[in-house]
């Protein structure tokens, strides 16, 4: 094809016309860009946005004395003269749809308190609609949430919701705790957006386990998550495994578990056969594997004080460390 002809093709001419148009009308377009808008006042906004007016006037964002009197809408949406003239959605800032920048958003211009941590880099902050993913500004709901906090978290964290359906769980499904009881959703310094580091967070409610104790159990100092899983577990007490399997990860089985059991009653039926004083009501039934059942079913039947104790256990040879008392 003749290159000269190509230069003057239809597409080329259209593009040229577009640049010419932009050049001629540049001053007008510049004036119409949201960045050059000026404030028009709430009454202008509410003339058109009747529904929003009804929704926002009862809210803290409308009633807060920190907002500029008469220009409350524009406190969040920015100056609205261009939008009032063009009536185009793109000509005004909308926190719900315009949130995308990693750099920040307008909500944080006012919400600077400590509880907002340092949001940049926090996954919750960088969701599709930023703060509006969870909050609705034009509402009187508590904390301006779009749903109750329990329902809201469920939408994205379905796998955690599943863990709360297991037989042992913190009472979140019962409505006695909320996700925010442990999680600081606005970020901070801790893993999993926890309000505190693991140990401090758990001990803020379970303070009887803090110690320091005379007789310690080392994993308690190390990390609660070695033995427990916080959302839900099949085993009792949110244990990652049921006893004795959990204990056997670190401890050998009691050597008495290797005894052969007698098939019969525990108490001697022949007076004087064995020493007294076995109390008459200390009796029971024994079986071939009775010693194994006793020593390899639940270790904390005897070693109850697994989080630590100030009282020594009975044997000198274990130096009082068996956590039975």
């Amino acid at each position: 094809m003749n290159p000269h002809l190509k230069k003057w093709s239809c597409g080329y001419r259209l593009r040229l016309m577009k640049y010419l148009f932009l050049f001629l009308f540049a001053p007008y377009l510049w004036a119409q860009s949201p960045g050059n808008a000026v404030k028009v006042g709430d009454s202008t906004c509410l003339d058109c946005h009747e529904d929003e007016a009804a929704a926002i006037t009862p809210t803290i964002h409308w009633t807060s004395p920190q907002m500029e009197e008469g220009f409350i809408c524009e406190s969040c949406h920015g100056p609205g003269s261009v939008h009032a003239e063009t009536e185009e959605a793109t000509s005004i800032y909308n926190p719900r749809t315009d949130f995308m920048e990693v750099e920040g958003n307008k909500c944080l211009d006012c919400h600077t308190g400590e509880q907002f941590g340092s949001l940049q880099g926090v996954a919750h902050y960088e969701m599709e609609n930023g703060c509006s993913s969870c909050h609705t500004v034009h509402s009187t709901s508590e904390h301006l949430l779009v749903k109750s906090s329990r329902e809201l978290c469920k939408d994205c964290h379905q796998e955690v919701v599943g863990q709360f359906q297991l037989a042992s769980h913190h009472p979140v499904p019962e409505g006695l705790m909320e996700c925010v009881s442990c999680h600081q959703v606005h970020g901070g310094n801790n893993a999993f957006a926890a309000t505190e580091g693991t140990r401090e967070l758990c001990l803020s409610c379970h303070s009887s386990k803090e110690g320091p104790f005379v007789f310690e159990h080392e994993p308690v100092n190390e990390d609660c998550n070695i033995c427990h899983t916080p959302h839900g577990a099949v085993a009792n007490a949110l244990l990652v495994q049921n006893e004795p399997a959990l204990c056997m990860n670190c401890h050998y089985m009691h050597f008495h578990s290797s005894l052969t059991g007698y098939e019969g009653t525990v108490f001697s039926e022949t007076p004087g056969e064995f020493f007294e004083p076995l109390h008459p009501n200390r009796t029971g039934v024994s079986s071939l594997d009775a010693w194994k059942k006793a020593f390899t079913t639940k270790c904390t039947q005897c070693h109850q004080q697994v989080h630590g104790s100030d009282l020594p256990s009975q044997g000198v040879s274990s130096m009082g460390r068996s956590l039975t008392r």
């Binding site: 297991l166 037989a167 099949v234 006893e243 578990s257 290797s258 594997d289 194994k292 390899t296 079913t297």
Partner: peptide, 19 residues
């Protein structure tokens, strides 16, 4: 009388729930 056959001990603590 030591007996080191531990092949049944798992059955004492297995869990199986339907909720």
């Amino acid at each position: 009388l030591a007996n080191y056959d531990y092949s049944t001990i798992h059955s004492y603590s297995d869990l199986d729930y339907q909720f």
